[in-house]
Nucleic acid binder design. Structure first.
Length: 206
DNA sequence: TCTACGATCTTT
DNA sequence: AAGATCGTAGAT
């Protein structure tokens, strides 16, 4: 069952945590989400929406429940899921997944390299799904080419600051908006900064 | 037009 | 530690 559109019509930090365990499906490939990050504008200079709406990030400002796919470093595509209402531009970046189905397709998309299909990093996730800009703004809450389905939430969750955003304001660099399923190998590096969600004081929990 | 620079990954 | 590789945004 696809997660309904209203699932995404909430605060991006809550949606991010709830997406852990959900299943992304495209064709023969199915992946379980094991690590995510939340981005939101206004109030977060790490978010791509910080400079306003452009042709590239238009999907971020669009309706929730759609994909936002962009090219990073000229090499890697990143998959985001847009959340919230029109007042904000927010999305969840999918950083790591456990492959469930379509191993042969994933291996082929990785250039035929053998070995464990460690989908630990946003570029690898998008590559496994064969995503590019043509899937930007595609809805994911109903049957179609790219769908996110309900899954089992992990027993425990790890939290920490987001990765690769040194350009953002210091106060935003330290926001604990990175979440990962505990006890899985499917988490991108650096993993050392992640701590159990339950180890945070209740008032400090995102 | 020109230039700097990434929400990364791989190899050295 | 650094190269790959290119679309985007802001400056010229």
């Amino acid at each position: 069952m696809p997660l309904p559109r209203r699932f995404y019509d909430r605060d991006v930090v809550a949606v991010a945590q709830d997406l852990l365990g959900a299943v992304i499906r495209r064709g023969a490939v199915a992946l379980r989400i094991t690590e995510v990050e939340a981005y939101r504008w206004p109030g977060d200079t790490a978010c791509h929406a910080r400079a306003g709406r452009t042709a590239r990030n238009a999907a971020l400002f669009g309706p929730c429940g759609h994909a936002y796919v962009y090219l990073c470093y000229g090499l890697h595509h990143m998959l985001n899921l847009v959340t919230g209402g029109d007042a904000e531009a927010a999305a969840v970046l999918v950083r790591a997944c456990e492959p469930l189905e379509g191993l042969a397709t994933i291996r082929r998309r990785r250039g035929g390299k053998s070995g464990p299909e460690l989908l630990t990093g946003p570029g690898k996730v998008a590559a496994a799904l064969g995503l590019d800009r043509s899937m930007d703004a595609h809805p994911v809450y109903r049957p179609g080419e790219l769908v996110v389905e309900r899954g089992d939430a992990p027993a425990s969750v790890l939290v920490g600051p987001r990765v690769g955003i040194d350009f953002a304001e210091p106060a935003h660099r330290v926001l604990p908006w990175r979440f990962a399923a505990a006890g899985t190998a499917w988490v991108s590096r650096p993993i050392a900064s992640l701590v159990p969600l339950t180890s945070l004081r209740r008032d400090d929990r995102p």
